[in-house]
Design a protein around this nucleic acid. Sequence first.
DNA 1: TTGTAGGCGTTATCAG
DNA 2: CTGATAACGCCTACAA
Lengths: 351, 351
Amino acid sequence: MTEPRTPDVATETEWAEKSRRRGTSATIYDVAKVAGVHPSTVSRALSNPGRVSAKTQKLVEDAAARLHYQINPFARALPTGKTSTFGLIVADITNPTFFDILRGAQAAASVRDYTLVLAESAESAVTEVTAARRVMATAEGLILASPRMDDDEIRALAADKPVVVINREVKGVPCVIPDVRKGIGEAVRSLAAAGHEKLAFVAGPPGSWMSAHRWAGMQAACEWSRLQAVRLESIKPTVDGGRLVASDVLAGRATAVLTYNDLLAIGLMQQLQAAGVVVPDQMSIVGFDDIFGANFTSPPLTTVRSPLGECGSRAVTQLLALLHGGGASPQTLWVETELVLRGSSGRLLTS
Amino acid sequence: MTEPRTPDVATETEWAEKSRRRGTSATIYDVAKVAGVHPSTVSRALSNPGRVSAKTQKLVEDAAARLHYQINPFARALPTGKTSTFGLIVADITNPTFFDILRGAQAAASVRDYTLVLAESAESAVTEVTAARRVMATAEGLILASPRMDDDEIRALAADKPVVVINREVKGVPCVIPDVRKGIGEAVRSLAAAGHEKLAFVAGPPGSWMSAHRWAGMQAACEWSRLQAVRLESIKPTVDGGRLVASDVLAGRATAVLTYNDLLAIGLMQQLQAAGVVVPDQMSIVGFDDIFGANFTSPPLTTVRSPLGECGSRAVTQLLALLHGGGASPQTLWVETELVLRGSSGRLLTS
DNA sequence: TTGTAGGCGTTATCAG
DNA sequence: CTGATAACGCCTACAA
């Protein structure tokens, strides 16, 4: 009574036709038909291997392979919420510090078979919240890199889904933050040893948590080393911003400058050199972050390195822990900074 | 008989409770209840404004706002396939040329309310195909930046969903490619005018379409200008690779070098300078791409600029056209390159 | 203009 | 161990 012809072939060609008609790809129903089992069995075989007999398992797997079956992530996400996706929100995609964070996060995510979706807030707090909400809808967790929105909004997001903040401290939310003390300490000691007595700090954007953090760290270090520290403001934390602050720096009579970030340092150095100032003989310059290209300058830039790539990968790890790890909620994580001593800082040559 | 109490408030608090119980957010059903209409009306009001009376429209919008309703992208994507998402596949997230592409693509995408998802292929053709397939499942279209897989695989992907290739020509698939002729022509003429007679080209990876393209362009330009062109191989297209090729360059007796990319140029320049060679007096160096940081070096790097950001945004535009534009299928798009003349190239000073 | 019903592809829960 | 069935949240004919 049983049909001798293999049903596989028949149903398979049938599917091929269907597939050609509509641009769609195979579903568990197609696989089920080819394998000669029930769709729910296919689901089990494919997502919970072990809950099905070995024979059926193989049957299903073969059918799936033959049909090039690919799970439909939306259909899967609908009932389960599992999207295998993290969101990364950055203030400004143009800022190179973000590159390293992205790199680290992407690497860590792809190891665990997670995908990163990217959104930018164009430096605006409201755009940022909107973007975050939008991404939140499709991601299992969120990484906020140097967020501009205020603490309460971040906490509100975090109440919804796992959130990790990079480069800023927010109470009640896991953060990954470079601890500047070691790096700044090394920088200031090195400058003190080189004979500098008055240091300037070129600050970043007024609202920046990191800028405040770094300025505080520098003040502390200077006090400890009995150096004078003055603070200058910048227009924007970019190469151009660095150029623009050059005159202030010269007027300030400091002999060494720490800048909020490497971009400022590079712009400042360019402008100073254009004005005939020799670096580091007449002025030492130290940046922050050790971004890509910081060693392209001449002299190459001395900088306090933040392990941005590590921040990115740690953030992903934290997210994963919050998600699957269950138990202990990870709290804020401080990562070490270190001085990268290159050519732009050194002994003052008084003429 | 009608209840005088406003049902809004009642249902709204009811929803708040439900929301607290399960971690879920408001659905069109919740909105419908609050607005006092049918769920399908909510759907219409929210996604096809105009197909509903002005009064109802407002009712629904208010309710949605009050509940902080957010559409569930998965539920929406399931029946429609509209995910508002593009995939961007890059060979190596570490390569800075990729950053500009990302930047351009991200900007163009976000204008149209599209999100970018990122995947990396770790320079492996098979990983790349896997990644592409995975992303393909959730994205409406794909951008392949300098893909490593072979032409047929790309065409196979393109048969499935809109695909745009950057930095490589694949027949039958829309591409966005910097046309090197103008830029190289300018570079070679400028070197010829400066008295150089023998030029070297430091090639990139053996399989790279772009490397071949650039070498061909350079040969053509040299022939036209009656200059001699020799080709050198590099180990890898990075700063280190550039350092390693320095000795070959010196041995080659050329007086000017074009390198496959800026990274090679920067490494080469560093190594040459360390060996006491003065750039550009004794050796002119010209890179390709004008990546971030190319102007940080001293002398700043002369380079043939590829408008990478534009490539990224054009790719998105193409995708959008393929998707919604209907009609004419966009074919490959050549974007202009230009010489960015900076300090690393110039007249040869024979001593 | 608005309500009704069925389906999109998966997973989870219950029976068998 | 496997089959049936009901969600998941939204969209879209079709009917009222």
